[in-house]
Design a protein around this nucleic acid. Structure first.
Length: 289
DNA sequence: AGTTGTCAAGCTAGT
DNA sequence: ACTAGCTTGACAACT
């Protein structure tokens, strides 16, 4: 998302307002806005972007009768060319309702449809296997080994287009980097480590040693390892993301990772404002070493 | 025009 | 039993 550009690529509507017309107008608007945001990004030196899951509202919902993949193929292809021409990397992050290891089959089924939507978008914009779909492992249901097993079983039945892009992220209360690594061992799924989640939920290892573990889960085809960065909201509940990045903290954080090649996704409320700050800090570190 | 309750959907921890 | 929080904000009805 971007608060400077003056449009949103995540405009949506209520399910009760659904019509083919409303849907098509919304998607057309979102794709046009996505193009504007990407243009803004290259003008401001930002080359990694998370595409909103609201780009195509209700894409995986049974109500959606429009063959949006065909209707908007030209618009998607145009965005794809822009990304490739400008060497922009993109990722997507399905919402909290996408739970592959749920003990409810209907939830799992809807989650798979939602992942297919995300993979379709990345296919339509012609991005390769370094354009990732980030997912949390899901719930624990009182038995983590069983829940991990369900995740692995479900993963093995996913389509190639999803499998080659899916990566898993540690979360702040249930699944640590170590837990994710257990899943990696039987599936080969690369791991994204999130600094704030790691701080809240770990197995005693530092962030750097956690990163040393996860970077080995990335293959060449997966692209440069991705990490997620955010700061805790001062005074907020555990896990609540801060309004902006803490420049001093980010600088020392990035400095500690200076010998690695990584792509950093910021999870922060003020979006591009902090991204610009982060780029300036990254350049300072680059120039001083 | 500005404010507030609600939105397709799941899960967890804290109150 | 209920709520905040999550990748998160925007819609729609109200004042």
């Amino acid at each position: 998302m971007n608060n400077s550009v003056g449009c949103t690529s995540a405009s949506t509507f209520r399910l009760s307002s659904w019509s083919e017309n409303r849907f098509k107008e919304t998607v057309r608007h979102n794709l046009a806005c996505l193009g504007r945001i990407l243009q803004w990004n290259i003008e401001n030196g930002i080359y990694f972007f998370r595409i909103t899951s609201d780009l195509v509202p209700f894409a995986s919902h049974p109500i959606c009768s429009v063959d949006w993949q065909s209707v908007f193929s030209e618009e998607f292809a145009r965005i794809g060319r822009f990304l490739t021409d400008n060497r922009i990397r993109v990722s997507m992050h399905p919402g909290q309702y996408t739970v592959l290891n749920s003990n409810r089959v209907d939830v799992v089924q809807r989650s798979i449809l939602e992942l297919e939507y995300h993979a379709d978008v990345l296919d339509l914009i012609n991005q390769g296997t370094d354009a990732k779909i980030v997912l949390h492992v899901g719930g624990v249901y009182g038995d983590k080994p069983k829940a991990i097993d369900r995740f692995v079983q479900t993963y093995q039945n996913l389509s190639d287009s999803i499998q080659c892009r899916l990566i898993i992220e540690n979360d702040e209360r249930s699944y640590t980097v170590q837990d994710c690594h257990t899943i990696y061992e039987s599936t080969g799924i690369p791991i994204v480590v999130d600094n704030l989640h790691h701080e809240a939920n770990n197995s005693g290892e530092s962030f750097i040693s956690a990163f040393d573990i996860v970077k080995e889960t990335w293959r060449t085809k997966d692209g440069v390892p991705i990490i997620h960065y955010s700061s805790q909201e001062y005074d907020g509940r555990l896990g609540k993301h801060a309004e902006a990045i803490d420049a001093r903290h980010f600088k020392s954080f990035l400095h500690s990772l200076r010998k690695y090649e990584i792509d950093v996704m910021l999870e922060v409320k003020d979006k591009e404002k902090s991204a610009i700050k982060a780029m300036q800090i990254a350049k300072q570190i680059e120039n001083s070493s």
